[in-house]
């Protein structure tokens, strides 16, 4: 059914995962198309971060397959995983900056690890990436000296440092003011266009979701209940989805 030129970069096949008996992913299937931005939305605590971590094998599923470019990464050993992960960049929900390094060293880390660039070249890229996320003159600071939103942006700069083929963003704009959030959204779109990367974004922000998404997927009860183009999603008949994008407390999703 899939169009021949758009074979999936990442394909999740009937993924099951539970923590201490609590089912988080319940036979989830998802195909991520190459060179597109896919936004995954869903309830808080619904398992979005867990899903994202499966794609880069930080979490191994209880059952099911995670195919990255056709290879089931759940069966690879450490060394083979390392090779696959060189294609990835990831922004963590809580930034996960190395607190023993300065901001500059954090962004430079992937460059130092995987390129043979000279120090001044690295410095140049670091400066550029930090400027892209709207940060100037913070390179020598320690992460603990930054605000939460600033840390998030440093994390973003670090994820983009190597211009990876696949980028995973866990809530890139949460905790940012609307103006910075919009700038970050644009950065994601631009980056995607420039490098033809495959972007997978987790977001709660409906507005920004429709701004950046080529495809939107809704995670609900451990499954992808709806996936499609933003227009299709907006006009979806799925009640849970409609409740989610309209942001109402009443509906099939009961929070309290």
């Amino acid at each position: 059914m899939a169009k021949p030129e758009s074979s999936p970069v990442i394909e999740l096949v009937s993924l099951h995962k539970s923590f201490n008996g609590q089912i988080v992913l319940d036979g989830l299937d998802l195909r991520i198309e190459a060179g597109q931005t896919t936004v995954i939305i869903g309830q808080s605590g619904g398992g979005k971060s867990v899903l994202l971590k499966h794609m880069i094998a930080l979490i191994k599923p209880d059952q099911g397959k995670v195919l990255v470019e056709g290879v089931d990464i759940t069966r690879l050993n450490d060394r083979q995983l390392n090779n696959i992960r060189k294609n990835f960049g990831m922004l963590f929900q809580a930034a996960a900056l190395f607190d023993s390094m300065t901001v500059g060293e954090n962004v430079a880390f992937p460059l130092r690890e995987h390129t043979r660039l000279k120090q001044h070249e690295i410095d140049e890229i670091v400066k550029h990436k930090l400027r892209q996320v709207g940060l100037k003159g913070v390179a020598h600071k320690m992460p603990s000296e930054l605000s939460g939103g600033m840390q998030k942006r440093v994390g973003l700069a670090r994820a983009l440092a190597l211009d990876p083929k696949i980028i995973l963003f866990d809530e890139p704009t949460t905790g940012l003011d609307p103006i910075t959030a919009d700038a970050i959204d644009r950065l994601i779109v631009d980056t995607q266009k420039h490098t033809n990367a495959t972007c997978i974004v987790i977001s709660h922000d409906i507005e920004s979701t429709f701004k950046i998404a080529d495809t939107v997927a809704m995670l609900y009860h451990g499954k992808i209940v709806e996936i499609g183009k933003p227009e299709d999603i907006k006009s979806s008949k799925n009640l849970a989805l409609q409740q989610f994008i309209q942001g109402k407390a009443e509906g099939p999703i009961q929070v309290v």
């Binding site: 021949p4 030129e5 056709g70």
Partner: peptide, 8 residues
């Protein structure tokens, strides 16, 4: 490599 995607 088929259409920008590579299979190993």
């Amino acid at each position: 490599t088929v259409g920008g995607t590579s299979t190993t």
